[in-house]
Design a protein around this nucleic acid. Structure first.
Lengths: 205, 205
DNA sequence: ATTGAATGCGAATACATATTCGCATTAGGG
DNA sequence: CCCTAATGCGAATATGTATTCGCATTCAAT
């Protein structure tokens, strides 16, 4: 952020700009999201935009940051560890994921369709860290079950697998595969994998 | 393609343009891949480029098409069904995938890093179709083992999971996770999932 | 060798959009 | 109420790149 907003009106302006960015992306698509449109949607001039954001990108970064925070909070509120069933835990997390993707009137869909040119890593990292934490707690409780040493790798695989499969499915409204079936299958794949004993074929040419 | 090349020289020119596109993307990155640079790399003028390709995009499409074909051929040559072990089958396919990603001096890496703005679906579809075919043959031979009815969904999930996990890992040279470990773990996740009996919890609210 | 069609050229043009800057307006402490 | 710094403005500017078009060159059929 180029300059700190000091007065009340400018602090509101900054927030209005971030909100407007979300609205424009959601309504016009990322391609048509220009500084002019954002400024207009915020009821503000382009010049004012550059008063507080060095460039368009940093404005979008601010938006992503805010979304990542929201998702983190949402996840933390989910009572995922309340029962001890891995299958249920995974299922709930995945359903939460779909809910997020469908929220905010398609904003997430548009972002997800363009994740590659956005600072998405921020968001993915939040999720990955959170799942890592969940996994640690779970296996601490159930340590006798499956002493997983390479938890890191498994969480990486699982996070990316689930995210991308959801993203691909949603961003091309694949009519042939129902979201429920996808959620169920993803859940069983992941739950099974996470409760799999460490592979003995670890060492290989 | 705007116009059919009729003479020998123009057919060579079209090929030279496609090759040059690959080279420029690989050497300069997709962002710096301009029609001017492509033409220069092909030893040709911009005007000639527009003689045979309506726009830049269709030139890139031609490149993707050619790559998809190459991958398809490579897959078909792989002796995946020679033995009857699902684990080995999956492992080989995944290793082939990594090999492709590392081939062509980073061309694939650059493409993969920007897949969202490219006609990547073409390539993904080729892979998905191929795996669907493989799965069909496999379960026809082993029909007694696991009568999977929702093969479609499973192949979708597996294809996307593997692809994206590989892509994420590679496109951010994650030093913490070794490619071999990733391949091994992916293989066991997928092999296990594909040999899982149909989920009984199929029907749920 | 001639000639019309195919091919090739690249400076000029069109276009989209980010970013700046000099001036106008407003806030709020004194 | 005054005055200055903060804020706000938006037409003008800068930039990058795709695409065109009138002319030059080459091909290949006769």
């Amino acid at each position: 952020m180029r300059k700190r907003p000091q007065q009340q009106r400018s602090r509101e302006l900054v927030q209005a700009l971030i909100d407007a960015t979300a609205r424009v992306i959601q309504q016009q698509g990322l391609d048509n999201t220009t500084t002019a449109r954002i400024a207009e949607a915020a009821g503000v001039s382009v010049g004012s935009l550059y008063q507080y954001f060095g460039d368009k990108e940093s404005l979008i970064e601010a938006l992503m940051e805010s979304l990542a925070e929201g998702i983190g909070t949402g996840l933390r509120r989910l009572p995922l560890l309340d029962n001890d069933d891995m299958h249920a835990l995974i299922g709930n997390a995945i359903r939460f994921g779909f809910a997020v993707l469908h929220s905010r009137d398609g904003l997430y869909l548009e972002l997800v369709r363009n994740w590659h040119r956005l600072p998405t890593d921020r968001v993915v990292d939040v999720l990955q860290q959170h799942f890592m934490e969940l996994a640690r707690v779970y296996f601490l409780r159930h340590y006798r079950d499956y002493p997983i040493d390479n938890l890191e790798v498994r969480v990486f695989i699982v996070t990316n697998s689930v995210l991308f499969t959801m993203v691909r499915h949603i961003s091309q409204h694949n009519g042939l595969i129902r979201e429920n079936a996808l959620a169920t299958e993803l859940t069983s794949m992941v739950a099974n994998y996470m409760t799999l004993p460490p592979s003995s074929s670890e060492v290989q040419a």
